[in-house]
């Protein structure tokens, strides 16, 4: 059989060998511009990642080296004090917990509600709905200090005039992370396939039943992830709180609705770090480690949630 396909003459055989060699050669890696460009580009990408990670690593190492000696239970139970050996973060930890608790209470219904409206009810052909959409995306990029000014002018003073109480901080932080929650929730709601909605509606379910029983349950894990990430951002904010009367030296536990002075973890760290005493600055470093640990824990929880309940369609 194969004999039929043997090239007849020497010249033909020679040409066939040549063709085969050319094919083989083209399979090998080609030296030249493309390969070089490929490597340069990959190198640039690695550099970008390294610079980002380097900054983070430096902060971490610096905080660890400086605050290492102060890591103890006193850090959590100790009160605000100018004596570094007695001082801790009890008031500010409690303050942060209150702050964040109220932020969650406010931001979840508002953010998810807005996302449901924009995804399920709003007619995207209408210009005002598109305007709302663009605005929400813009709001997500507004600096935190601007929200602080807003909170001071409208919530602490001005129309609401609540005074310098903790809950005003929660309200301002809720406004700050609301766009993030709305955007994240919309993404997840949009990811629920239209066929699920159609299936439910075709069974005679109302729009609200469809959203409540089919769309939201499928979107909840993603919404939770978005909320946790937004909250993580709120935990670390100090700038707007400074404007809202987060006092830097509070020696008693905060009350959310009383005008008795309050503080939060990042504000306290900021205050300790600004002190001239070396040992108090160590305390600030320990506070940073504490806060990073909290953030890391929250982010891990978000990742766990996402992996645990992620719905593949």
């Amino acid at each position: 059989m194969s004999a039929d396909f043997e090239p007849k003459s020497g010249r033909v055989r020679f040409a066939a060998d040549g063709a085969r060699a050319a094919t083989l050669a083209s399979l090998h890696r080609q030296p030249g511009g493309e390969v070089l460009r490929n490597r340069i580009f990959a190198g640039l990408l690695v550099a970008a990642v390294s610079i980002a990670l380097l900054g983070l690593a430096l902060i971490l190492i610096d905080a660890l080296l400086e605050g290492r000696g102060r890591l103890s239970l006193d850090l959590i139970t100790g009160s605000t004090s100018s004596d570094a050996d007695k001082a801790g973060f009890q008031q500010s930890i409690l303050g942060t917990l209150y702050l964040i608790g109220f932020v969650i209470l406010m931001v979840v219904p508002l953010g998810v509600g807005a996302a449901i409206y924009l995804e399920e009810y709003a007619d995207k052909g209408r210009w005002w709905n598109r305007l709302i959409e663009v605005n929400i995306q813009n709001l997500a990029a507004v600096p935190a200090i601007i929200y602080g000014i807003l909170g001071l002018a409208f919530i602490v003073r001005g129309p609401l005039g609540l005074g310098f109480i903790l809950i005003t901080g929660s309200m301002t932080l809720a406004l700050l992370v609301l766009p993030t929650v709305i955007i994240a929730s919309r993404e997840v709601i949009r990811a629920v396939p239209p066929s699920i909605r159609e299936g439910a509606l075709a069974l005679g379910a109302t729009e609200w039943q469809t959203i409540r029983r089919q769309v939201l349950p499928a979107a909840v894990p993603g919404i939770l992830t978005g909320v946790i990430l937004a909250i993580s951002r709120a935990v670390g904010e100090a700038a707007p709180l400074l404007l809202l009367g987060a006092a830097t030296f509070v020696t008693f536990n905060p009350e959310p609705f009383a005008d008795t002075g309050w503080t939060a973890l990042p504000v306290q760290i900021f205050q300790y770090a600004a002190r001239p005493q070396e040992d108090i600055r160590e305390l600030a470093a320990a506070g940073i480690i504490l806060m990073l640990a909290v953030l890391l824990l929250m982010n891990s929880f978000a990742i766990w949630l996402r992996n645990r309940y992620e719905q593949r369609w």
Partner: peptide
Amino acid sequence: RKLIGMVFQKPNPFPKSIYDNIAFGPRAL
């Protein structure tokens, strides 16, 4: 739509149990 049901081109079960897939409609109604 309660009186005139529909089955779609691509099977679109809800991401729930078999039981809940059936029970969704009667419960909603």
